[in-house]
Simulated scan of single mutants.
Amino acid sequence: MSGHSKWSTIRHKKAAQDAKRGKIFTKLIKEVTVAARMGGGDPEANPRLRAAIAAAKAENMPKENIERAIKKGTGELEGVAYEEVIYEGYGPGGVAILVEAMTDNRNRAASEVRHIFTKNGGSLGEAGCVAWMFDKHGLIVFSKDKVSEEEVMEVALEAGAEDIRDQDDQFEVVTTVGDFEKVKAAFDEQGLAYEMAEVTMVPQTTVRIEDEKTAQQLLRLIDMLEDNDDVQHAYANFDIPDEILNSVA
């Protein structure tokens, strides 16, 4: 899974540096709002809301923005009613793609997502065609030039991580959704700097993409999906070799 995780960390760093912060905030606010609507406004009793708040704070979202989003979710303030929608399909090279969206207009979202798939050599599929290939986990990624394997392993195992993977120049710590915050907090307490930490959909198997043109088209598809206003996340099961990933990234 290293090629996919590395691309995720590249995008994560890029998003933090570029001018799309307003768009990032919009997606985070949607998640906080929907989480509060579905599970209540108390983060202690609502794990999804707790994770959404943590993600918002990680992007330095002002506290008042977070509180306002929670109140819109619980109905204390008037707000847009977002609906969660899942889209599934295939990209270039037969890569499975799972798209999580939150929208106030299902028809618009479906039309735009379908257009992005078609424009970039992919195809939108039926519900359930690829979802079974992914499992929801917490994922914490470290760069090997910043931490040692012993440091990561000691903290991860003590905190209850599911798995630790040695992937090229990265270590990947996999957790259950329920243990994610606890494991992440353990690394924070020890001052171990990670490249990325999030609850994500982890593919059970990956598709190796070794053709540069296919990789470029595939990553353009993922980028366009994630840049869409209605799309919260786009997950895929590709594995692209470092030399090709660095070339097209």
Rank of each mutant, 00 (worst) to 15 (best):
N246G: 05
P47M: 15
V231F: 05
A55S: 13
G121S: 00
V207C: 07
F117C: 12
G39S: 08
G91M: 00
E44K: 15
Q167D: 02
G128M: 00
R37Y: 08
R220Y: 04
Y194N: 02
I164R: 05
D179T: 09
T74E: 15
I66N: 01
Q204S: 12
L28K: 10
M133G: 11
K182H: 09
C129T: 15
E158S: 14
E158Y: 15
E100F: 04
D188L: 05
V174P: 00
M224F: 12
A197K: 05
E181L: 13
A156D: 04
A186W: 06
E112C: 05
M201C: 06
E210H: 01
D227S: 09
S247H: 11
G125I: 04
T205M: 14
N105E: 02
P47N: 09
E149I: 11
A55W: 05
I70D: 03
D145S: 15
G93D: 11
E226M: 07
R50N: 07
N246Y: 11
S123V: 15
V183R: 08
M102W: 13
E158K: 14
F238E: 01
A109C: 12
V155P: 03
I10P: 00
M133C: 13
H4A: 09
S8F: 12
A58T: 09
I244M: 08
A193Q: 10
S111H: 09
A36H: 04
